[in-house]
């Protein structure tokens, strides 16, 4: 109506500044969209050399890793990664779930005020520190306490130690998401259940957990993808032996550790270089797959309550 008049009253310089700001900020925002495409295409381009000389099936399902004679089987590394991440999720998931219900449903103000910084600090500790802690505390604990219980001799540098360290690392990550998820459940829903005479525990079991199930699954998926890409801490405690692990007391060699240990030295062999870039690509594809799946699940979950 009178919008044109208002616009006339704004001086041209201010409008020009506005337009100028809009354009460069748009360009920077577009930069954000370009970065992931750039990374994926760069990794694809670098690993094309390996893919030209070997079939994909050969690379993923062969367990022969002899870079010097041109044999690149990624199965040991993929299996180690799967063992470590799944075991760590197995440890972290129940702790996170129980703690999330406790913090959202039962805990009072003082407990929350104490736990929030605890979770934040745990999330902020660098992975090297977790690695050091793993070497100081977890490795001896596994070697001297847990392994003898099963009658196994081990140095402690194995899948189980790596999983324990990883579990501790992803706990704050999963816990934060779970708390958010449980808090998005509308109060009316739980109040309706309480007003019908259901007890608190009954409500948690049959209303909150049931409603939050997709969210819980996606939180676990995000945790899984986070632990899949974790490098330094795992590298320090996992033992780094390139063989398919046959049990939790065996050493492993996950994908990120493979890249970190070998990259930079092997630039002289183009195929080796290409194989390591392929493992980075593989890592990224797996992580993106879990991420996209979980995020979509979360998005559809949040939409239902709006």
């Amino acid at each position: 109506m009178n919008w044109n008049r208002i616009r006339d009253n704004i001086s041209p310089t201010r409008l020009q500044i506005n337009k100028f700001n809009e354009v460069w900020m748009l360009v920077w925002t577009l930069f954000l969209v370009v970065v992931p495409l750039f990374i994926v295409s760069g990794l694809l381009w670098k690993s094309s050399l390996l893919l030209e000389n070997h079939t994909l099936k050969e690379i993923i399902f062969s367990s022969e890793w002899k870079p010097m004679s041109g044999k690149f089987g990624f199965l040991p590394f993929i299996m180690s990664s799967l063992w470590v991440t799944l075991l760590s999720l197995l440890i972290a998931a129940p702790i996170c779930l129980f703690s999330a219900i406790h913090l959202t449903q039962y805990a009072n103000r003082y407990v929350l005020r104490f736990m929030q910084p605890v979770i934040d600090i745990l999330a902020g500790i660098p992975s090297v520190i977790y690695g050091v802690w793993g070497i100081i505390a977890v490795v001896p604990f596994v070697a001297e306490k847990i392994a003898p219980m099963f009658g196994v001799q081990t140095t402690g540098y194995n899948i189980l130690s790596a999983s324990i360290v990883l579990a501790v690392m992803v706990i704050p990550f999963i816990l934060n998401i779970l708390i958010d998820i449980i808090n998005t459940i509308p109060k009316e829903l739980t109040e309706a259940s309480l007003s019908l005479g259901a007890g608190k525990w009954y409500t948690i079991k049959h209303v909150i957990l049931r409603k939050a199930l997709p969210g819980i699954i996606s939180a676990m998926g995000l945790g899984l993808s986070r632990s899949f890409g974790e490098t330094i801490a795992v590298l320090m405690v996992v033992g780094n032996v390139a063989a398919i692990p046959s049990g939790i007391f065996q050493p492993g060699y996950p994908l990120p550790a493979l890249i970190a240990n070998n990259y930079g030295e092997m630039m002289s062999i183009p195929q080796y270089d290409s194989a390591l870039m392929f493992s980075a690509l593989l890592l990224m594809i797996i992580v993106l797959f879990f991420n996209i799946g979980s995020r979509f699940l979360i998005m559809s979950y949040e939409k239902r309550f709006k």
Partner: peptide, 18 residues
């Protein structure tokens, strides 16, 4: 926001290698 969350999920070793 979706893209940002994905970018956040990319492991740092991939950034390093790239």
């Amino acid at each position: 926001r979706f893209i940002l969350d994905l970018l956040w999920g990319i492991p740092s070793i991939v950034y390093g290698a790239f």
